[in-house]
Amino acid sequence: MKANVYSEDQYITLKMADNGDVIVGMPYIQEWIEAVRSVPGRKWNVAEKQWEIPGTKSAILFLCHVLKDIPVKLGDAQLGEMFPELLQLQTAEEKIALQRLREGMKLKGYSTKTQKAYMGHAERYLRMLPVPLKDAELKHTRAYLLNLHEESRSSSYVNQAVSALRFWHVTVLGRSDPNLRIRPKRQKKLPVVLSTIEVSKILKSVQHMKHRTLLALIYSSGIRIGEAVRLTKQDIDPERRTIHIRQGKGGKDRFTVLSTAAYDLLQNYMKNQPIIKYLFPGGKGLDHHITERSVQQVFERAIRKAGISKPATVHTLRHSFATHLLENGTDLRYIQELLGHASSKTTEIYTHVSIKDIRRIQSPLDRMIGFEEDE
Protein backbone atom coordinates (compact mmCIF):
# COMPACT_ATOMS: atom_id res chain seq x y z
CA MET A 1 0.00 0.00 0.00
CA LYS A 2 1.13 3.55 -0.69
CA ALA A 3 -1.12 5.11 1.95
CA ASN A 4 1.44 7.85 2.59
CA VAL A 5 0.93 9.26 -0.92
CA TYR A 6 -2.62 10.39 -0.12
CA SER A 7 -4.09 12.35 2.77
CA GLU A 8 -5.73 10.30 5.53
CA ASP A 9 -9.27 11.27 4.52
CA GLN A 10 -8.85 10.17 0.90
CA TYR A 11 -9.95 6.68 -0.04
CA ILE A 12 -12.29 4.82 -2.36
CA THR A 13 -15.57 3.49 -0.94
CA LEU A 14 -17.26 0.42 -2.40
CA LYS A 15 -20.95 -0.30 -1.80
CA MET A 16 -23.51 -2.72 -3.20
CA ALA A 17 -26.22 -1.19 -5.41
CA ASP A 18 -29.80 -2.48 -5.41
CA ASN A 19 -29.31 -3.89 -8.91
CA GLY A 20 -26.28 -5.98 -7.87
CA ASP A 21 -23.63 -3.63 -9.27
CA VAL A 22 -20.89 -2.13 -7.11
CA ILE A 23 -20.90 1.63 -6.51
CA VAL A 24 -17.44 3.22 -6.50
CA GLY A 25 -17.31 6.41 -4.48
CA MET A 26 -14.15 8.53 -4.51
CA PRO A 27 -12.74 12.07 -4.49
CA TYR A 28 -11.73 13.65 -7.80
CA ILE A 29 -8.26 12.20 -8.30
CA GLN A 30 -7.44 11.63 -11.95
CA GLU A 31 -5.27 8.60 -11.27
CA TRP A 32 -8.12 6.88 -9.41
CA ILE A 33 -10.66 7.75 -12.08
CA GLU A 34 -8.43 6.24 -14.76
CA ALA A 35 -8.07 3.08 -12.67
CA VAL A 36 -11.85 2.63 -12.37
CA ARG A 37 -12.40 3.47 -16.04
CA SER A 38 -10.11 0.58 -16.95
CA VAL A 39 -12.50 -1.98 -15.39
CA PRO A 40 -14.49 -3.80 -18.13
CA GLY A 41 -18.20 -3.02 -17.95
CA ARG A 42 -17.80 0.08 -15.80
CA LYS A 43 -20.31 2.87 -16.37
CA TRP A 44 -20.99 6.40 -15.20
CA ASN A 45 -24.41 6.81 -13.56
CA VAL A 46 -25.42 10.28 -14.73
CA ALA A 47 -28.42 10.59 -12.41
CA GLU A 48 -26.49 9.64 -9.26
CA LYS A 49 -23.18 11.08 -10.45
CA GLN A 50 -21.20 7.98 -9.53
CA TRP A 51 -19.13 5.20 -11.09
CA GLU A 52 -20.52 1.67 -11.06
CA ILE A 53 -18.92 -1.64 -12.02
CA PRO A 54 -20.55 -5.07 -12.53
CA GLY A 55 -20.92 -7.09 -9.34
CA THR A 56 -19.18 -10.09 -10.91
CA LYS A 57 -16.17 -12.11 -9.86
CA SER A 58 -14.13 -11.09 -12.91
CA ALA A 59 -14.87 -7.37 -12.46
CA ILE A 60 -14.02 -7.51 -8.75
CA LEU A 61 -10.73 -9.31 -9.39
CA PHE A 62 -9.83 -6.72 -12.02
CA LEU A 63 -10.76 -3.93 -9.61
CA CYS A 64 -8.53 -5.46 -6.90
CA HIS A 65 -5.68 -5.44 -9.39
CA VAL A 66 -6.03 -1.79 -10.40
CA LEU A 67 -6.67 -0.54 -6.86
CA LYS A 68 -3.84 -2.46 -5.19
CA ASP A 69 -2.02 0.77 -4.21
CA ILE A 70 -5.10 2.83 -3.34
CA PRO A 71 -6.76 2.97 0.15
CA VAL A 72 -10.20 1.34 -0.02
CA LYS A 73 -13.15 1.07 2.40
CA LEU A 74 -16.03 -1.39 2.05
CA GLY A 75 -19.31 0.36 2.65
CA ASP A 76 -21.21 -2.76 3.73
CA ALA A 77 -20.46 -6.22 5.13
CA GLN A 78 -22.22 -7.97 2.24
CA LEU A 79 -19.46 -7.03 -0.20
CA GLY A 80 -16.73 -8.61 1.91
CA GLU A 81 -18.77 -11.79 2.34
CA MET A 82 -19.49 -12.06 -1.39
CA PHE A 83 -16.00 -11.12 -2.55
CA PRO A 84 -13.31 -12.02 0.06
CA GLU A 85 -10.70 -10.74 -2.41
CA LEU A 86 -11.68 -7.19 -1.46
CA LEU A 87 -10.28 -7.77 2.03
CA GLN A 88 -6.83 -7.61 0.45
CA LEU A 89 -7.48 -3.91 -0.08
CA GLN A 90 -7.21 -3.14 3.64
CA THR A 91 -4.88 -0.32 4.53
CA ALA A 92 -1.48 -1.03 6.02
CA GLU A 93 -2.71 0.28 9.38
CA GLU A 94 -5.67 -2.10 9.37
CA LYS A 95 -3.52 -5.08 8.42
CA ILE A 96 -1.12 -4.34 11.28
CA ALA A 97 -4.00 -3.97 13.75
CA LEU A 98 -5.54 -7.28 12.62
CA GLN A 99 -2.16 -8.99 12.89
CA ARG A 100 -1.82 -7.72 16.45
CA LEU A 101 -5.25 -9.17 17.19
CA ARG A 102 -4.18 -12.58 15.85
CA GLU A 103 -1.01 -12.52 17.91
CA GLY A 104 -2.86 -11.40 21.03
CA MET A 105 -5.34 -14.26 20.79
CA LYS A 106 -2.56 -16.81 20.25
CA LEU A 107 -0.68 -15.53 23.30
CA LYS A 108 -3.89 -15.83 25.35
CA GLY A 109 -4.33 -19.41 24.14
CA TYR A 110 -7.71 -18.80 22.52
CA SER A 111 -9.14 -21.75 20.60
CA THR A 112 -9.06 -21.84 16.80
CA LYS A 113 -12.84 -21.33 16.75
CA THR A 114 -12.67 -18.26 18.96
CA GLN A 115 -9.82 -16.79 16.90
CA LYS A 116 -11.79 -17.27 13.69
CA ALA A 117 -14.92 -15.72 15.20
CA TYR A 118 -13.07 -12.71 16.65
CA MET A 119 -11.24 -12.08 13.37
CA GLY A 120 -14.57 -12.17 11.54
CA HIS A 121 -16.06 -9.57 13.88
CA ALA A 122 -12.98 -7.34 13.58
CA GLU A 123 -12.99 -7.50 9.77
CA ARG A 124 -16.74 -6.76 9.59
CA TYR A 125 -16.21 -3.79 11.91
CA LEU A 126 -13.47 -2.44 9.63
CA ARG A 127 -15.66 -2.84 6.55
CA MET A 128 -18.40 -0.79 8.17
CA LEU A 129 -16.07 1.87 9.61
CA PRO A 130 -16.54 5.17 7.69
CA VAL A 131 -13.16 6.59 8.81
CA PRO A 132 -9.59 5.27 9.10
CA LEU A 133 -9.13 2.97 12.09
CA LYS A 134 -6.93 5.40 13.99
CA ASP A 135 -9.69 8.03 13.77
CA ALA A 136 -12.42 5.69 15.02
CA GLU A 137 -14.43 7.18 17.88
CA LEU A 138 -16.97 5.91 20.40
CA LYS A 139 -19.84 6.86 18.10
CA HIS A 140 -18.51 4.56 15.37
CA THR A 141 -18.36 1.54 17.66
CA ARG A 142 -21.81 2.36 18.99
CA ALA A 143 -23.20 2.70 15.47
CA TYR A 144 -21.72 -0.66 14.49
CA LEU A 145 -23.27 -2.44 17.49
CA LEU A 146 -26.62 -0.73 16.92
CA ASN A 147 -26.50 -1.90 13.31
CA LEU A 148 -26.15 -5.49 14.51
CA HIS A 149 -29.34 -5.07 16.53
CA GLU A 150 -31.11 -3.61 13.51
CA GLU A 151 -30.05 -6.68 11.53
CA SER A 152 -31.90 -8.77 14.18
CA ARG A 153 -28.72 -10.53 15.23
CA SER A 154 -29.11 -12.76 18.29
CA SER A 155 -27.97 -11.53 21.69
CA SER A 156 -25.24 -14.19 21.74
CA TYR A 157 -23.91 -12.91 18.39
CA VAL A 158 -23.87 -9.30 19.59
CA ASN A 159 -22.25 -10.33 22.87
CA GLN A 160 -19.53 -12.13 20.94
CA ALA A 161 -19.01 -9.03 18.80
CA VAL A 162 -18.64 -6.95 21.98
CA SER A 163 -16.13 -9.44 23.40
CA ALA A 164 -14.13 -9.45 20.17
CA LEU A 165 -14.02 -5.65 19.83
CA ARG A 166 -13.29 -5.17 23.53
CA PHE A 167 -10.36 -7.59 23.42
CA TRP A 168 -9.06 -5.93 20.25
CA HIS A 169 -9.54 -2.29 21.24
CA VAL A 170 -8.83 -2.47 24.97
CA THR A 171 -6.48 -5.42 25.53
CA VAL A 172 -4.53 -5.38 22.25
CA LEU A 173 -4.65 -1.75 21.06
CA GLY A 174 -4.78 -0.22 24.56
CA ARG A 175 -7.84 1.94 23.93
CA SER A 176 -10.79 2.69 26.18
CA ASP A 177 -14.34 2.36 24.95
CA PRO A 178 -17.31 2.46 27.37
CA ASN A 179 -19.62 1.17 24.63
CA LEU A 180 -17.85 -2.16 24.92
CA ARG A 181 -19.00 -2.48 28.53
CA ILE A 182 -22.65 -2.51 27.48
CA ARG A 183 -23.95 -5.95 26.62
CA PRO A 184 -27.44 -6.90 25.44
CA LYS A 185 -29.57 -8.91 27.80
CA ARG A 186 -29.27 -12.59 26.96
CA GLN A 187 -32.34 -14.11 25.40
CA LYS A 188 -33.81 -16.84 27.59
CA LYS A 189 -34.44 -19.49 24.96
CA LEU A 190 -34.99 -23.10 25.92
CA PRO A 191 -33.03 -25.67 23.91
CA VAL A 192 -34.83 -27.97 21.50
CA VAL A 193 -35.02 -31.51 22.87
CA LEU A 194 -35.77 -34.71 20.97
CA SER A 195 -37.66 -37.60 22.54
CA THR A 196 -35.95 -40.99 22.81
CA ILE A 197 -38.24 -42.24 20.03
CA GLU A 198 -37.19 -39.36 17.77
CA VAL A 199 -33.48 -40.00 18.46
CA SER A 200 -34.01 -43.67 17.61
CA LYS A 201 -35.72 -42.72 14.33
CA ILE A 202 -32.84 -40.43 13.39
CA LEU A 203 -30.16 -43.06 14.07
CA LYS A 204 -32.12 -45.74 12.18
CA SER A 205 -32.50 -43.43 9.18
CA VAL A 206 -28.70 -43.25 8.76
CA GLN A 207 -27.45 -46.27 6.79
CA HIS A 208 -23.79 -45.25 6.52
CA MET A 209 -21.99 -47.04 9.38
CA LYS A 210 -19.47 -44.28 10.09
CA HIS A 211 -22.12 -41.59 10.20
CA ARG A 212 -24.51 -43.63 12.35
CA THR A 213 -21.74 -44.49 14.81
CA LEU A 214 -20.65 -40.87 15.06
CA LEU A 215 -24.17 -39.58 15.75
CA ALA A 216 -24.76 -42.39 18.25
CA LEU A 217 -21.60 -41.41 20.14
CA ILE A 218 -22.62 -37.74 20.24
CA TYR A 219 -26.04 -38.57 21.70
CA SER A 220 -24.96 -41.35 24.04
CA SER A 221 -22.09 -39.33 25.55
CA GLY A 222 -23.34 -35.77 25.24
CA ILE A 223 -20.19 -34.58 23.49
CA ARG A 224 -19.93 -31.56 21.23
CA ILE A 225 -19.60 -32.03 17.48
CA GLY A 226 -16.08 -30.56 17.51
CA GLU A 227 -15.07 -33.02 20.22
CA ALA A 228 -16.62 -35.97 18.39
CA VAL A 229 -14.87 -35.47 15.05
CA ARG A 230 -11.47 -35.23 16.82
CA LEU A 231 -11.80 -38.48 18.79
CA THR A 232 -8.94 -40.98 18.49
CA LYS A 233 -8.78 -44.65 19.36
CA GLN A 234 -6.77 -43.77 22.48
CA ASP A 235 -9.67 -41.69 23.79
CA ILE A 236 -11.93 -44.74 24.09
CA ASP A 237 -11.59 -46.82 27.27
CA PRO A 238 -13.86 -49.90 26.98
CA GLU A 239 -12.74 -51.28 30.37
CA ARG A 240 -13.78 -48.20 32.33
CA ARG A 241 -16.60 -47.43 29.87
CA THR A 242 -15.42 -43.85 29.46
CA ILE A 243 -14.46 -41.44 26.69
CA HIS A 244 -11.58 -39.04 27.31
CA ILE A 245 -12.34 -35.61 25.89
CA ARG A 246 -9.04 -33.81 25.44
CA GLN A 247 -8.90 -30.03 25.41
CA GLY A 248 -12.62 -29.46 25.03
CA LYS A 249 -14.27 -26.07 25.21
CA GLY A 250 -12.25 -23.76 27.42
CA GLY A 251 -9.14 -25.93 26.98
CA LYS A 252 -10.35 -28.48 29.56
CA ASP A 253 -9.98 -32.27 29.67
CA ARG A 254 -12.83 -34.40 31.01
CA PHE A 255 -14.30 -37.88 30.96
CA THR A 256 -17.79 -38.78 29.84
CA VAL A 257 -19.75 -42.02 29.67
CA LEU A 258 -19.18 -44.62 26.94
CA SER A 259 -22.46 -46.32 26.10
CA THR A 260 -22.35 -50.11 25.68
CA ALA A 261 -24.60 -49.89 22.62
CA ALA A 262 -22.50 -47.10 21.10
CA TYR A 263 -19.29 -49.06 21.76
CA ASP A 264 -20.75 -52.11 20.00
CA LEU A 265 -21.48 -49.89 16.99
CA LEU A 266 -17.95 -48.50 17.18
CA GLN A 267 -16.39 -51.98 17.24
CA ASN A 268 -18.37 -53.10 14.18
CA TYR A 269 -17.45 -49.88 12.40
CA MET A 270 -13.71 -50.21 13.15
CA LYS A 271 -13.64 -53.76 11.74
CA ASN A 272 -14.09 -52.30 8.27
CA GLN A 273 -12.50 -48.87 8.75
CA PRO A 274 -8.69 -48.54 8.98
CA ILE A 275 -7.84 -46.10 11.77
CA ILE A 276 -4.58 -44.14 11.54
CA LYS A 277 -5.27 -41.15 13.77
CA TYR A 278 -8.89 -40.10 14.03
CA LEU A 279 -11.81 -42.48 14.58
CA PHE A 280 -13.81 -40.69 11.91
CA PRO A 281 -11.57 -39.69 9.00
CA GLY A 282 -12.80 -37.29 6.32
CA GLY A 283 -12.44 -36.91 2.60
CA LYS A 284 -8.91 -35.50 2.78
CA GLY A 285 -7.41 -38.79 3.95
CA LEU A 286 -7.10 -41.08 6.97
CA ASP A 287 -4.93 -38.56 8.86
CA HIS A 288 -7.66 -35.86 8.65
CA HIS A 289 -10.90 -35.98 10.63
CA ILE A 290 -14.34 -35.54 9.09
CA THR A 291 -15.40 -31.90 9.03
CA GLU A 292 -18.07 -30.53 11.34
CA ARG A 293 -20.02 -29.27 8.34
CA SER A 294 -20.13 -32.79 6.86
CA VAL A 295 -21.62 -34.13 10.09
CA GLN A 296 -24.18 -31.32 10.12
CA GLN A 297 -25.22 -32.21 6.56
CA VAL A 298 -25.55 -35.88 7.53
CA PHE A 299 -27.81 -34.92 10.43
CA GLU A 300 -29.92 -32.58 8.28
CA ARG A 301 -30.57 -35.41 5.83
CA ALA A 302 -31.34 -37.80 8.69
CA ILE A 303 -34.02 -35.67 10.34
CA ARG A 304 -35.70 -35.10 6.98
CA LYS A 305 -35.70 -38.83 6.30
CA ALA A 306 -37.01 -39.54 9.81
CA GLY A 307 -39.86 -37.08 9.24
CA ILE A 308 -38.98 -34.87 12.22
CA SER A 309 -40.09 -31.25 11.92
CA LYS A 310 -38.41 -29.86 15.05
CA PRO A 311 -35.68 -27.26 14.36
CA ALA A 312 -33.00 -29.70 15.50
CA THR A 313 -29.24 -29.61 14.88
CA VAL A 314 -26.41 -31.97 15.81
CA HIS A 315 -26.07 -30.01 19.07
CA THR A 316 -29.69 -30.98 19.86
CA LEU A 317 -28.41 -34.51 20.48
CA ARG A 318 -26.27 -33.12 23.33
CA HIS A 319 -29.28 -31.25 24.77
CA SER A 320 -31.36 -34.42 24.49
CA PHE A 321 -28.67 -36.50 26.25
CA ALA A 322 -28.64 -34.14 29.24
CA THR A 323 -32.43 -33.85 29.44
CA HIS A 324 -32.98 -37.61 29.24
CA LEU A 325 -30.41 -38.21 32.00
CA LEU A 326 -32.16 -35.66 34.20
CA GLU A 327 -35.57 -37.21 33.55
CA ASN A 328 -34.16 -40.62 34.50
CA GLY A 329 -33.00 -39.30 37.87
CA THR A 330 -29.33 -38.51 37.26
CA ASP A 331 -28.02 -35.85 39.65
CA LEU A 332 -27.50 -32.46 38.02
CA ARG A 333 -23.92 -32.29 39.33
CA TYR A 334 -22.98 -35.45 37.44
CA ILE A 335 -24.59 -34.13 34.27
CA GLN A 336 -22.54 -30.93 34.65
CA GLU A 337 -19.33 -32.99 34.82
CA LEU A 338 -20.25 -35.12 31.80
CA LEU A 339 -21.08 -32.05 29.71
CA GLY A 340 -17.99 -30.14 30.85
CA HIS A 341 -19.92 -27.07 32.03
CA ALA A 342 -17.85 -24.66 34.10
CA SER A 343 -20.94 -23.38 35.92
CA SER A 344 -23.91 -25.32 37.30
CA LYS A 345 -26.13 -22.46 36.07
CA THR A 346 -25.45 -23.56 32.50
CA THR A 347 -26.60 -27.09 33.28
CA GLU A 348 -29.71 -25.90 35.13
CA ILE A 349 -31.30 -24.94 31.80
CA TYR A 350 -32.25 -28.61 31.42
CA THR A 351 -34.49 -28.44 34.48
CA HIS A 352 -36.70 -26.10 32.45
CA VAL A 353 -37.09 -28.48 29.50
CA SER A 354 -37.47 -31.70 31.49
CA ILE A 355 -41.04 -33.01 31.46
CA LYS A 356 -40.52 -35.56 34.26
CA ASP A 357 -42.49 -33.53 36.81
CA ILE A 358 -44.76 -31.81 34.29
CA ARG A 359 -46.24 -35.17 33.29
CA ARG A 360 -47.38 -35.74 36.85
CA ILE A 361 -49.51 -32.62 36.78
CA GLN A 362 -53.09 -33.10 35.68
CA SER A 363 -54.55 -30.34 33.56
CA PRO A 364 -57.82 -28.90 34.95
CA LEU A 365 -59.43 -29.71 31.62
CA ASP A 366 -58.83 -33.41 32.23
CA ARG A 367 -60.75 -33.15 35.52
CA MET A 368 -63.83 -31.91 33.73
CA ILE A 369 -66.18 -34.74 32.95
CA GLY A 370 -68.58 -34.45 30.06
CA PHE A 371 -67.69 -30.83 29.20
CA GLU A 372 -68.17 -31.60 25.53
CA GLU A 373 -71.80 -32.66 26.15
CA ASP A 374 -72.53 -29.30 27.79
CA GLU A 375 -71.85 -27.44 24.56
Score class of each variant (00 low, 15 high):
residue 127 R to A: 08
residue 141 T to S: 03
residue 117 A to S: 09
residue 146 L to C: 00
residue 148 L to C: 06
residue 129 L to M: 05
residue 152 S to F: 08
residue 138 L to W: 12
residue 141 T to D: 02
residue 134 K to W: 03
residue 155 S to V: 00
residue 116 K to T: 13
residue 137 E to V: 06
residue 155 S to L: 01
residue 117 A to Y: 01
residue 154 S to K: 01
residue 116 K to F: 06
residue 145 L to N: 09
residue 134 K to F: 10
residue 120 G to P: 13
residue 122 A to G: 14
residue 143 A to N: 12
residue 146 L to D: 02
residue 146 L to N: 14
residue 122 A to Q: 06
residue 152 S to Y: 13
residue 124 R to H: 10
residue 139 K to R: 10
residue 146 L to T: 01
residue 118 Y to S: 02
residue 113 K to D: 06
residue 128 M to Q: 08
residue 119 M to Y: 11
residue 124 R to G: 15
residue 133 L to I: 14
residue 152 S to N: 08
residue 146 L to V: 02
residue 118 Y to C: 04
residue 140 H to Y: 04
residue 120 G to E: 06
residue 142 R to Q: 06
residue 151 E to L: 12
residue 139 K to L: 03
residue 128 M to I: 13
residue 153 R to C: 14
residue 148 L to E: 09
residue 142 R to E: 06
residue 135 D to N: 11
residue 157 Y to M: 11
residue 144 Y to P: 09
residue 157 Y to R: 04
residue 144 Y to I: 05
residue 141 T to I: 15
residue 119 M to Q: 13
residue 152 S to C: 10
residue 139 K to V: 08
residue 138 L to A: 15
residue 125 Y to N: 11
residue 128 M to E: 08
residue 135 D to M: 14
residue 156 S to W: 03
residue 143 A to L: 14
residue 122 A to V: 05
residue 158 V to L: 07
residue 158 V to S: 06
residue 133 L to Y: 08
residue 130 P to E: 00
residue 150 E to P: 07
residue 144 Y to N: 03
residue 126 L to R: 10
residue 117 A to M: 09
residue 114 T to D: 01
residue 131 V to H: 08
residue 138 L to F: 07
residue 126 L to D: 01
residue 116 K to W: 01
residue 136 A to E: 01
residue 142 R to H: 11
residue 129 L to G: 05
residue 136 A to R: 05
residue 147 N to L: 04
residue 144 Y to S: 04
residue 147 N to F: 05
residue 113 K to N: 13
residue 151 E to N: 08
residue 115 Q to I: 13
residue 115 Q to L: 11
residue 126 L to W: 02
residue 156 S to L: 12
residue 131 V to K: 10
residue 132 P to R: 10
residue 152 S to T: 14
residue 131 V to N: 15
residue 118 Y to N: 10
residue 131 V to M: 15
residue 145 L to C: 13
residue 155 S to I: 00
residue 130 P to Y: 01
residue 130 P to T: 00
residue 146 L to I: 02
residue 134 K to H: 07
residue 127 R to K: 09
residue 134 K to C: 12
residue 128 M to R: 07
residue 115 Q to S: 15
residue 133 L to C: 12
residue 113 K to A: 12
residue 150 E to F: 04
residue 124 R to E: 10
residue 155 S to K: 02
residue 111 S to E: 04
residue 155 S to Y: 00
residue 136 A to M: 03
residue 113 K to P: 08
residue 151 E to A: 15
residue 117 A to C: 09
residue 124 R to T: 07
residue 142 R to P: 02
residue 135 D to R: 14
residue 112 T to I: 13
residue 112 T to A: 15
residue 127 R to V: 00
residue 126 L to A: 03
residue 133 L to N: 15
residue 139 K to C: 01
residue 149 H to G: 09
residue 156 S to C: 09
residue 113 K to S: 12
residue 147 N to K: 11
residue 128 M to H: 08
residue 138 L to N: 10
residue 139 K to G: 01
residue 154 S to N: 02
residue 117 A to H: 06
residue 121 H to V: 05
residue 142 R to A: 06
residue 131 V to G: 11
residue 135 D to K: 10
residue 121 H to S: 06
residue 151 E to G: 04
residue 145 L to K: 09
residue 113 K to M: 14
residue 148 L to H: 12
residue 115 Q to N: 07
residue 121 H to P: 05
residue 122 A to M: 04
residue 150 E to Q: 10
residue 120 G to K: 03
residue 138 L to I: 12
residue 124 R to Q: 11
